[in-house]
Write a protein that binds this DNA or RNA. Structure first.
Length: 236
DNA sequence: AACCGGCACAACCGCAGGGAA
DNA sequence: TTTCCCTGCGGTTGTGCCGGT
């Protein structure tokens, strides 16, 4: 099957995005959403490929993106998740709110990989691996965790995976309104997610939902990993 | 000061999955 | 069922920065 090119390559800008381009993209998405990435740059007046716009938005301009250095907890979580999932950066990113798959991939390739012995690095997964497998891995992982002490928490994480997946669908699907992305951006989704978890668990200690649930998230995963509580997964 | 190599990060490329026609 | 289109993902590349010489 011959695939159509993703866009008209001729005359399109490549390379670094300028602040002006960023502003145009953000402004357009705020007003009209991103129902159709392919059509977006033309309608917004950007000389960019739709894929480029999508990548720029997801990895850099989207609300809720955490910039800056990774914390030790985040790095440890990436290592642990990578041991389970391999190079499933999107799946790993699901577990690290505010971090993008590209960012995680970069961090891994630049320095986290070096922390491990070469024989610990998983072989590259087959590209044929279906995307659903990512979710299944997380689902299974969450289910396994659910049998342990933090069952409600983990099952909520399963929901989180679904929510995230659903969110990505929303990005190209539903009403095209930016509201779900912008007004209820990543941080806010996670916020409600964590709030829900707390209410479900009946936790008495406020988990700093507004500040950073991520550290607690990391701590949870680390506890699971370090305790070797996951059957079939190597203990750290 | 100039050069060089390594590093970090942003962005691109090509493929695969999923849905619509 | 097949074909086509769009989106998302993972691998790779390009580029700027920084430290060492």
């Amino acid at each position: 099957m011959v695939r159509a090119p993703c866009c008209e390559k001729v005359g399109l800008n490549k390379g670094q995005w300028t602040p002006e381009e960023d502003e145009i993209l953000v402004s357009y998405i705020q007003n009209y959403g991103h129902e159709n990435w392919r059509a977006l740059p033309k309608e917004a007046g950007l000389l960019r490929c739709g894929k480029s716009c999508r990548l720029r938005w997801i990895n850099y301009l989207r609300p809720g993106i955490k910039r800056g250095n990774f914390t030790k907890e985040e790095e440890d979580a990436i290592i642990s998740l990578h041991q389970m999932l391999g190079n499933k950066w999107s799946a790993i990113a699901m577990m690290l709110p505010g971090r993008t798959d590209n960012e995680i991939k970069n961090v891994w390739n630049t320095h986290l990989k070096k922390r491990l012995n070469p024989n610990q690095i998983l072989p590259k997964p087959k590209r044929k691996m279906q995307r659903q497998d990512n979710l299944n891995s997380i689902m299974e992982f969450s289910s396994a965790s659910a049998s342990e002490s933090c069952s409600d928490f983990s099952s909520s994480c399963t929901e989180s995976s679904n929510v995230t997946e659903g969110d990505s669908n929303n990005a190209s699907g539903n009403d095209g309104s930016l509201e779900s992305v912008h007004d209820h951006g990543v941080e806010e989704i996670d916020e409600s997610f964590w709030t829900e978890i707390l209410s479900m668990n009946g936790c008495d200690s406020p988990l700093m939902v507004a500040d950073s649930p991520i550290e607690e998230d990391m701590s949870f995963w680390l506890r699971i990993f370090e305790a070797g509580e996951l059957e079939g997964f190597p203990k750290i």
